[in-house]
Nucleic acid binder design. Structure first.
Lengths: 347, 347
DNA sequence: TTGAAAGCGCTAACAC
DNA sequence: GTGTTAGCGCTTTCAA
């Protein structure tokens, strides 16, 4: 069944059917109704491939993430996908696992399917991803940590804001020995978080000795291992800030194993605020980086690029702010004396 | 850049280029090399829409799930997506939230993009999903709980096997008051799990009184609420089997809140074995329903349907078995006397 | 305002 | 074994 069949049934030309289906306003309402009725009668659905072929637009956006099974990403996929559908687009999903081969495969798929734009939300716009897509003038948006990437919409994450809040929150609870468990330091995003931590500490006159900066890998297992190392220290930390929530979950799990009470003997703060963070025991205090906001920023940038000619697209930049969410995994440092209440002003 | 440009560069016809690119074996290797070189030189990538248009196959499979943010599904999406790519397909993802409107939208999208098959992994092949796709002879595969659905590949889940193992495991730990927290009972899958529980109990001469069967909703919050109700009982259960892992996580969280030790004062068993189950505290004993196996079964069925003409496709059925995974959230019932060791045979 | 017809990039039947 | 060519289903000039 095709447009010709509907045209014949409605006794108009295929051009008119096409116009009606694309809401071209200059069509006689009488004819339009005939077309719509015919289409409904036959259950006609236009063929997207034919449309794409002639229009040169696939109405598909690519979304590149690190790993769908990483709890950080499903919310992004969900939001991006919903926005896509709401705007008549489809989403081409690629999960690269930060692996070069898979990145190249992802790019190849995007090009084959002629996507109208690609959002790279792997927290590092790897060159292997960019080069081919650039040549083909595919609109690009991605998360940036270092210098602004030219010819691309940059979503800059303000790690500092949330991490500073976390550090100051811990300091307010009288913590001084605050450890930081990093992510894999080859990832720019992990590096940026670590740097933000160090700067935030320095800012309030605290010092994080090297033994309190331990490298994790953004997995639960990594958190488990990292706590294992930290408790062997002569002087243990009283609080731990983690580079992501999965790490924090690992820390809490291992603390339980080691009979260390969280938050009373050890305060733990995560990063990301994945959905699950509020449901672990105790509910995790963490720095929120809104996944839905990130996905929305990325999608909007792609949608905007659609209208604009390629040369007008100078690299613009937007910022995603992070901020602390207080839950139950932090407490006053053990043995801290409450400051005595001053005599009441009135009585 | 198109096939003609490559043809000209390689001094052959477009037909030959097409043959080379599709690995038709009867092409002169000399010419083939010229074509491949030309394509590589120009970075030529065939246009999938044009291919789809002429071949009538989009090389896209639809995947319908309930909710990507439900931790059960990302692994399915991952596996299905990887298999798709490995076989030259793309995945069209739809998340319906068991909502009628969204289901219909999903079907519409699938039809518009002319998918070559649809896997419905929402644990209930809703009629609103099936009708339209059937009319258009789209190969279908789905999870079935009740009677076999005709004209579709049915993946039947053997809930009984795993749940029976769970019940017998608890019984072996001397539990007699075993509660079951169900999912939303309008879902056939939740109903099937509940039934499997009741039958497994009866089978070993245990009885689950109505007050020990409480309705949850497959969320963490639901688990929290359900435990709240169970602890108010005059005679509390000593073990709880949950209809899914999220519920179990909720139970464990609330137990912590109520100072009930899991597993020593309360044994908890989940269902699904989501990735996270092994990382909560204590690691969750649960009934595994392999997500990757499910996705693989679904994908293979779609791939197989591709070769077969529509009428040959009588509804075939395959089974996915569930089975208990032992971790740390269950223990001997409190106060159970160990059975005294008999005098040693030798001494 | 509507229709006729060209053509998007590719595959496959047919001819050589 | 290779080339010529007719479409796949649609949009979009252009002419009426």
């Amino acid at each position: 069944m095709d447009i010709r069949e509907i045209a014949k049934l409605a006794r108009v030309s295929t051009a008119t059917v096409s116009r009606v289906l694309n809401s071209v306003p200059t069509v006689n309402p009488k004819l339009a109704k005939r077309v719509l009725d015919a289409a409904a009668l036959r259950g006609y659905v236009p063929n997207t491939q034919a449309r794409a072929l002639v229009s040169g637009k696939s109405r598909t956006f690519g979304l590149v993430v690190s790993e769908i099974t990483n709890p950080f990403f499903p919310q992004i996929v969900e939001t991006f996908g919903n926005l896509a559908v709401a705007n008549g687009y489809e989403m081409l999903l690629a999960s690269t696992g930060n692996d070069l081969k898979r990145m190249e495969l992802a790019v190849r798929r995007m090009i084959e399917r002629r996507v109208d734009g690609v959002a790279i939300l792997t927290f590092g716009m790897e060159d292997s991803l960019l080069a081919d897509l650039r040549v083909r003038k595919v609109p690009l948006v991605g998360v940036v940590v270092g210098p602004t990437v030219p010819g691309v919409t940059n979503i800059r994450i303000d790690y500092r804001h949330g991490i500073r809040q976390a550090v100051q929150h811990l300091a307010a609870l009288r913590h001084q020995r605050i450890a930081f468990i990093t992510g894999p330091l080859r990832l720019m995003s992990a590096m940026a978080r670590k740097t933000a931590f160090e700067e935030s500490m320095r800012e309030i006159g605290l010092y994080a000795p090297p033994e309190l900066l331990v490298e994790g890998d953004h997995t639960v297992e990594g958190g488990v291992a990292a706590l294992g190392r930290l408790v062997r220290l002569a002087e243990r930390p009283t609080a731990i800030l983690c580079s992501n929530d999965m790490t924090a979950i690992g820390v809490i799990r291992e603390a339980y194993e080691l009979q260390i009470n969280v938050p009373n003997q050890l305060s733990v703060v995560g990063f990301d605020d994945i959905h699950l963070a509020q449901f672990i025991t105790p509910p995790l205090t963490t720095v929120q980086m809104s996944q839905s906001e990130l996905a929305t920023l990325a999608f909007q940038a792609l949608l905007a690029a659609r209208e604009r000619p390629a040369q007008t697209r100078q690299s613009n930049e937007c910022v995603l702010v992070t901020s602390l969410v207080l839950r139950k995994s932090t407490a006053l440092v053990l043995g801290a004396q409450p400051i005595p209440r001053p005599p009441d002003f009135i009585s």
